[in-house]
Design a protein around this nucleic acid. Structure first.
Lengths: 340, 340
DNA sequence: TCTCTAATGAGGTACGTACCTCAAATCAAG
DNA sequence: CTTGATTTGAGGTACGTACCTCATTAGAGA
């Protein structure tokens, strides 16, 4: 049996009331007494029974994921995983929901974050691009007792904010490696397609991609990034233009999380399976493209795992525990037709 | 607030005692009353507060992983992950440990399983080859109230036993696909090295490997499996022999979970990085081999995830809940230097 | 109708912790 | 030594459930 506060009180030679004051940071305990209690905690290895504590204070956890309004299939996937996590964690009295706002307007995001109150929310996971306003708003959130994690996008800035997601530099690097190894031709050009190159995520992927390409496969030349701005019309135009200007394209790297438009366009223009093609994120579309050999590999992060990881981190922080880091690393997954 | 048994009693128009009898399957309740209570449960959406229930019955969970005595680096990895899970789950009153026995002797395994008592153990995860004896022993375990999952090896037999681990057929298939795509030569032979071909896992990997090889890369020929029996001496001999007999070997698939011996031998005989080489399981050795380009890819399963998944499944079964299947799928991971 | 049993109700204690009140002890300053 | 504040102790109730005992009620059989 694990020691309880009674055992602790006996060991420390104080009353239960004092133990309670120390454990819950209540005032009115002299420094030497606190020390005595802490030593006793060490000695008998007391660990608070969180279930009992939560029961006593009828505590439940509420977490919210802040997602972009746009984002197509991938965003849908994230929402599904959040709902799933919510269902499976209901028994542990943790609730997870999501909200969708215009994440590209820092003002909107900052306003939204300011409106959150620690009464009805214990933590927020932000899938939001970085900006000074957002950074300030998150700092203030932490101060108000709402835990914050960066979710799948951005990078950890404040040391009080954990980051859940993959290393995009490595993801780009992985894409380059796969393309280089899959290509059977001896030279050629590689088309790189992105939503936008404004975001840090995209930049890092590109950096990683170029680095590995240059180092390990100098026989191939990666073209400048095509930006689609999420616009189908534009996507079609820039890809057509690029193919026309570069007849020796042998591969394509679709960096954007919305892969449908670019891949369909490439298929239409050069025929399915003609290029080595790597895309990001697992969605119904990319899965099918993989099965039909229209895509060679998908680089993905396990969305469900990411969601649960974010929740675990927020919960651990609420309970002033350290999350187990090794469990919380999000792997860069390589998906082929065979291991879908 | 979630409804409690009091709300439930009010809704069903019975007393708390009756609610308790129904919820805990105690005798002495008429069928129509049980029905009334169950309807009330449905109606108000009552879910038992498991934390409170566990607190009340001072319940903690104890799970054990049954591992092979041998197994080198990979077994070490599994043990580490179990210890880690144990540490991080202590707060939830679940304890996980491991035991190592001679899993290849069905008699030893069956005896061991028979000796387990539900007083001190709630569940067992078996990393044990299949055999009729073991199957019987697991059935009896279930009957005695100890939950069982197959862990990383074997296949689900009894419907009461879940399987945690990857689909080995797909894993072999994935290896074949990678080799086929990585090879730049137009034809050649592929060396396949296994610990033993007796185990179902190895057989399935080989089947998947051959299937994909035949279908997608008929220009390459996969040689018969070399069996090392975990013996370094023998490993060296059979590989040397194989290379001598087949000068046109262009790739190697190391199926066994102990990859060090075969890879070192191949390096010694044909030079590091000369063949396209795929191995299984992430260990310190395979990681380093990957970094040094002595291996092209590792096919792995996330050990930590597998361990936690097994624990979650056993716990869910103890609580008569259904585990969330999608969370419990173990992915076949492809590891390159870039996404380690 | 009486009797016996099965079904149900009422009430308690316990689990480990939080949080509250009030009394008692301690201590420093005057 | 008194005063007042600070520190500590003692005891209670609560959270939601399990599990126990005992009393009461309903229903069936004679």
């Amino acid at each position: 049996m694990r020691p309880t506060i009674k055992d602790l009180a006996k060991e420390a030679g104080v009353s239960l009331a004092t133990i309670d004051r120390v454990l819950n940071d209540r005032p009115g305990v002299k420094e030497p007494t606190i020390l005595k209690v802490n030593q006793a905690i060490e000695k008998i290895g007391f660990v608070r029974n969180i279930q009992a504590a939560n029961l006593a204070r009828s505590k439940s956890y509420k977490f919210q994921f802040l997602l972009p309004q746009s984002g197509g299939a991938f965003r849908k996937e994230v929402i599904n995983r959040i709902e799933e996590a919510n269902a499976s964690l209901a028994a542990d009295a943790v609730f997870a929901g999501s909200a969708q706002i215009d994440v590209n307007d820092p003002h909107v995001v900052a306003n939204y974050l300011s409106s959150l109150k620690s009464d009805d929310l214990d933590g927020v996971a932000l899938m939001v691009p970085e900006s000074p306003q957002v950074r300030d708003a998150t700092s203030r959130l932490s101060e108000r007792g709402i835990e914050v994690v960066q979710f799948l996008s951005g990078q950890p800035k404040a040391s009080t904010v954990d980051f859940v997601g993959v290393d995009n530099h490595k993801a780009g690097s992985t894409a380059a490696s796969l393309i280089g190894r899959f290509l059977k031709v001896s030279s050629g050009k590689i088309m790189v397609i992105s939503d936008t190159m404004q975001s840090r995520d995209a930049l890092e992927r590109r950096l990683g991609f170029d680095e590995t390409m240059d180092e390990e496969f100098p026989e191939f030349y990666a073209l400048p990034s095509l930006e689609t701005y999420g616009n189908h019309e534009r996507t079609s135009r820039v890809i057509k233009q690029c193919i026309k200007n570069n007849p020796d394209i042998c591969a394509a790297y679709v960096m954007s999380s919305e892969a449908e438009s670019p891949i369909s366009e490439i298929d239409r223009l050069v025929g399915p399976g003609k290029l080595v093609l790597i895309a990001h994120e697992r969605t119904a579309f990319t899965e099918q493209a993989l099965m039909e050999n229209r895509t060679d590999a998908i680089i993905a992060q396990n969305t469900g795992h990411s969601v649960r990881s974010a929740i675990r981190i927020m919960k651990a922080r609420c309970e002033l525990r350290k999350p187990f880091a090794s469990q919380e690393t999000i792997r860069i997954e390589i998906l082929l037709k065979q291991n879908l």
